[in-house]
Design a protein around this nucleic acid. Structure first.
Lengths: 177, 177
DNA sequence: GGGAATTGTTGTCCTAGTCAACAATACGAT
DNA sequence: ATCGTATTGTTGACTAGGACAACAATTCCC
């Protein structure tokens, strides 16, 4: 069948039986011999775990965000960075990283890309030679404005998906963490 | 300062002014010349966006899960896979992938590792030569049982963190997606 | 003045996610 | 029955994210 590799631990069994299989060891719980692969319903212990559903929702949110903002090519992380820089002009990379929980090394490369796109600048900090004072370029400001408009569209979609009351409840519950 | 690279677009400015800076172009919004980097408070447009908070919570959940399950070395994704296989013995990789929204190629490598650790088996499907019937080995079953116990601990911690009422509200709201 | 700490950077490693190609197998229609 | 099409599992390659160590420049603090 497939080329090779670390799978198919049962090749020997397979060769021994003719191929049609009288179900000596192969497991087949529901109706056997179906056609197409659809999803299976039972999540097992998983459906008692909130983390699983949060993860699924988070993936949906990111995909929708990326799709909605695709004309600008702004990722969620980039949007968060531009957003915080705009609200705190002149902050350092360390402050930005602490605010958004982005590690220093990761942030450097994120900012490199934004700087190459002329959306942000790294100015020398007036009082501390180690720091960079970050700020948006004019291009960055207009891009952020456009991004905010699209992000609002995305947010409306999310509120619609969740329902209005759960949306507000969630927002309130999560903000105080 | 730093070695080189695509940053420091403002090196020229820096060389021109003496170094102490009379604030010709460097931006410094709050109190200037602080000591240590702490986080900054204003998230800007970000704090109207639920996705941001969901992301933060999701990261916390994963980290806590990983830490709690670390004695077993079971990641969230691995736990979800074992969980669904256990609840649907003999299902195919395609079904598993559709259920958990894991892409085929990604799932192959996930299962390879679990198979190498003897936690799962790939049996030949009795009726379809293309499929593998997945199931847990006895080792996999006992490992999953232990994992479930630890995962319950994690879940209790999450419920405590969120508060009991928000936890239940969230669970109910997210389950129906 | 000098050791310790901070800041930004680079390099490296590992995991996730995505996409294209492919072989083996099954299906459907003629 | 056979041929084109679809499905399943697999591999390879690429990108992005996150984590960690090492490092130079700078600042802090005693």
């Amino acid at each position: 069948m497939q080329k090779a590799g670390p799978s198919r631990a049962t090749t020997a069994m397979r060769a021994s039986s003719g191929g049609v299989a009288e179900d000596g060891a192969s497991a087949e719980k529901p109706a056997a011999g179906r056609r197409r692969a659809g999803a299976v319903s039972d999540l097992g212990p998983l459906d008692g775990h909130l983390g699983y559903f949060i993860r699924r929702l988070q993936i949906w949110v990111f995909q929708d965000f990326i799709r909605t903002l695709s004309p600008l090519e702004i990722s969620p992380a980039q949007f968060s960075v531009l957003s915080v820089i705009n609200a705190n002009e002149g902050l350092s990379q360390a402050e930005l990283g602490n605010t958004l929980a982005i590690e220093r090394a990761r942030l450097v490369r994120l900012l490199n890309r934004l700087q190459k796109r002329r959306l942000i600048e790294r100015l020398p900090s007036s009082a501390d030679g180690r720091r960079h004072a970050l700020r948006l370029t004019p291009t960055g400001q207009t891009t952020l404005k456009q991004a905010m408009a699209l992000a609002d569209t995305h947010e409306a979609g999310l509120r619609a998906k969740l329902g209005d009351a759960p949306y507000r409840a969630l927002m309130e519950a999560l903000r105080k963490l």
